[in-house]
Design a protein around this nucleic acid. Structure first.
Lengths: 194, 194
DNA sequence: CATGTGATGACACCAAGTGCAATCGCGTAC
DNA sequence: GTACGCGATTGCACTTGGTGTCATCACATG
């Protein structure tokens, strides 16, 4: 059945995580990752576009699930509720993995390069969310803004979750965040009126 | 007065912008930038940490001015108003430069590497804004969220500005954005209630 | 004129990333 | 069983980004 060793991609991911945790992202070389996975540098780059990408292969699935949830939501639900619902559900599934997810997050936050990559994935998610909302009939501009706010809420909630320990629910943290935004943004006066 | 040619840094920036516009970011090498500025590759890296940074030297000033504006605001003003005021004022000063700013933005958006850098600068701005708000007595978490929303509003407004042409005011675009957020986020129901 | 200083440059080096061609391990058709 | 096909893996050479070290230059100042 299997030629060579199977699951080359997973082996590379696991090797990378282990090494990054052991010695820090900057101190690890792609050659070392490949070595530990029993492969070569060249093969690494057949699976991942660059050194950072080995930690972000899950992002595509993550985004797809969120967008699917948005598109599947009943038409009556408000745009904010749709976005929060999608992010909350998929986020809950993610945080259910527990410690490994927290570890990965710590690694990502330890290197600027990785934070950059994380941010652009989140930005791609914002765009995809905005498109999905637009498909539901929400005005482009409003859709973009709602998507941005939704992802901001998700990010701060996820960060709080990652900083804490033990099993903890994401939804209440997100609810708290959106309550705070509603309270802060509600009574604001327009810039023009100063 | 001057040793060598003066203004090496500005020469490098100008050379970079010219080449990026001519041939695209990816097709330009650091050596070429340095050449056109009458310097060497090594000297380039004395001024800028990497190839992307040549387009982001203004970010530090930008951030400082915004934070100063926040810290200078009267204590009575609400957190959202403070943030929007600071971003609006400094953003207006920026957009007043007109076409060169639009050009730079087009370059940044043309290369993923540059978008990543832009995003992390914006994220640093969010953190700085949150710190400044916290210093004004706003709760940490609320401060972070307000900062995120503020920067989201600024970004979408700036993007609209950059896509249009001719002199145009940023403030009304930002006002419109925040009105949309208020309308969308106001009547939302908590996740727990589903 | 000697000397210090900061900007510039030469050089060597490492790591990331890429294009291309070879090879390997297997299944399948004949 | 042999030839062939195919996809995964690899070797190799090359470009580019980025860095450490040390020399050198052009000026200012005593």
């Amino acid at each position: 059945m299997a030629r060579w060793q199977p699951d080359a991609q997973e082996r590379l991911q696991h090797a990378a995580m282990t090494l990054f945790l052991e010695r820090g992202y900057d101190e690890v070389t792609v050659a070392e990752i490949a070595d530990r996975a029993g492969l070569t540098r060249r093969t690494y780059f057949n699976y991942f576009a660059d050194k950072r990408e080995v930690l972000f292969s899950g992002a595509a699935t993550f985004e797809r699930e969120i967008i699917d949830a948005v598109l599947a939501a009943p038409a009556a639900v408000s745009s904010v509720d749709v976005v929060m619902g999608a992010l909350g559900t998929v986020g809950a599934a993610l945080t259910a993995w527990g410690e490994p997810v927290r570890q990965r997050q710590r690694v990502v936050e330890s290197a600027t390069e990785l934070r950059e990559r994380e941010l652009i994935k989140m930005d791609a998610l914002v765009t995809a969310l905005a498109d999905a909302l637009h498909q539901r009939g929400v005005e482009r501009l409003t859709a973009t803004l709602v998507a941005q706010v939704g992802v901001a809420v998700y990010r701060t909630a996820f960060q709080q979750w990652a900083e804490s320990s033990g099993p903890r629910d994401l939804a209440p943290i997100m609810d708290d965040a959106i309550r705070r935004i509603r309270a802060a943004v509600g009574p604001a006066a327009p810039l023009s009126a100063r």
